[in-house]
Design a protein around this nucleic acid. Structure first.
Lengths: 205, 205
DNA sequence: CACTAAACGGACCGTGCGGTCATGTTGCTG
DNA sequence: CAGCAACATGACCGCACGGTCCGTTTAGTG
C-alpha cells in the first residue's frame, strides 16, 4: 500500500468518525470526503460502499467500549465497576450519535461487527459475573442483559439529552436499583444467548 | 368541505397510518398515496408537507395510548394497572413502527403533538399517583418517568424484537422491579417537569 | 531520471425523494 | 340544468444522494 494511500485512509476514518458523531449515519459521503480533504472517489476506493465504511467504524467503536469495560474489571467493588461501565457506555453513546447505531449494528450478521459485539457482551458478562458472585446484583442478569439495558437507557433518553443533559443518570440509577438482589422477582422471559444474529436483514443500518 | 374531500382524507389517514406502521417514517408520500388509491397531489392538498401529515398521525396515536391508560385507571390494584399500561404501550409501539417516533415527537415544540404528549404524561401520572399512594411504587417516580421508561424499554429491545419477540417483557419486568419501594435508593437527578419542550429543533422527525 | 502502476479527484449518471402546477373533473347551489 | 368553485391528478421540477469512470497526478523502483 502506498504511503499516500495509508495517509488518506487515516484522514478518511478520522473524518468519518467525527462527522458520524455529529450528524449520525445520515451524513453524505461527500461531506465526509470534504472534511477529510480528499475526493469523493477516493472514499469509494477504500470502501466499496457506504455501509462498509460505517461497519468498519462501528466495530472500532464497539471495541473502544470493550476496552473501557476491561479496564473497569480492576475495580475493587464489582457492582461499582458494573454501574460505572454502564454509565460510561451511555455517556459515550449520547456524545457520539453514531455509537447508538453501532450497538444496534452489533446485532447484525456482518461478521466484523458481530465479532466486536460478541466481545462487548463478553466483557459485560465478565463484569456482571463478578458482581453476581459477590451477591451485589441479582443472579438472573447476564452480560447480554447489561448491553441491552445500556442501549435502553441511552435510546430512551436520547431525545431529551440536549435539553436535560444529565437525565440519563436518573434512569440508569432506577434501572440499576432493579438489578440488585433485594429487588429481584422472577422474570417472565429467559435472557438471550447472544445479541447476534438478532437483527432482521433489511432493518436499520 | 366537500364530501369527496372528507372521504379522501379518511382514506389518506388510514393508508398513512398503515404504511407508517409497516415501514416507519421513511415511506414515501407516493407510496402512501398509492395505498390510499389517490393521487400524490391530493396528499399535499390535505397536508402542506410530509411532516404535517406525520404529526397529525402521531398525535392521534398518542391519544390512543392515553385512552388505553385511562381505561386502566379502573383496575383495582394500582401497580398492576401501571405495569399493564407500560406493557400495552411497549407492545403497541413494537407492532407499529411509527409509534416509536410518535413518542419522540411528543417532545417537540409543535403544539398539536406536544398537547397530545402532555395528555399522555397526565394519564401516566394519574396511574403512577395511585400506585404511589398505595405504596406499591417508590415515591420519587413520576408520570414523565413512566413515559420515558416505556420509551427506553421499547427502543432498547426494538432491534431484537423480530427474532426474540417477547424479550421486552424481561426488561420491563426488571425495570419495574426497580420502581418498587423496597428497591428505592436516592436518585441523583430530579424528574423532568414535562417532556416538552425538550427536543432540539433539528432533531429526528 | 524515467517509467509504471497505484492512487486520486471530480464530473457524471441514475434514482428517488418532497413539493408544485396547469389542466381536467366533480360535487354543490340557485 | 347550468355554472362555478372546490377538488383531484400526474407530469414535472429541483435537489441530494450513492456510486462510477476516466483523465490526471504521484509515489515508489531499477
Amino acid at each position: 500500500m502506498r504511503a499516500d494511500a495509508v495517509r488518506n485512509r487515516r484522514l478518511l476514518l478520522d473524518a468519518a468518525a467525527a462527522e458520524l458523531a455529529e450528524h449520525g449515519t445520515e451524513v453524505s459521503i461527500a461531506r465526509i470526503a470534504a472534511r477529510a480533504g480528499i475526493g469523493k472517489g477516493t472514499v469509494f476506493r477504500h470502501f466499496a460502499t457506504k455501509e462498509q465504511l460505517l461497519l468498519a467504524i462501528f466495530s472500532d467503536q464497539l471495541d473502544g467500549l470493550s476496552a473501557t469495560g476491561e479496564a473497569l474489571l480492576q475495580r475493587p467493588v464489582p457492582a461499582d465497576a458494573l454501574l460505572e461501565f454502564m454509565a460510561a457506555a451511555v455517556e459515550l453513546q449520547l456524545a457520539d450519535r453514531s455509537l447508538c447505531q453501532a450497538v444496534t449494528a452489533a446485532m447484525r450478521r456482518e461478521p466484523v461487527v458481530r465479532a466486536a459485539g460478541d466481545r462487548l457482551v463478553a466483557v459485560a458478562e465478565a463484569l456482571t459475573a463478578r458482581a453476581r458472585q459477590a451477591g451485589e446484583v441479582r443472579d438472573d442478569v447476564t452480560g447480554a442483559d447489561i448491553v441491552l439495558l445500556i442501549n435502553a437507557v441511552m435510546q430512551g433518553t436520547a431525545p431529551v439529552s440536549d435539553t436535560v443533559p444529565g437525565l440519563w443518570r436518573r434512569y440508569l440509577s432506577m434501572i440499576f436499583d432493579g438489578l440488585r438482589p433485594e429487588a429481584a422477582r422472577p422474570l417472565p422471559v429467559p435472557a438471550p444467548q447472544s445479541l447476534a444474529p438478532a437483527l432482521a436483514p433489511g432493518r436499520a443500518l
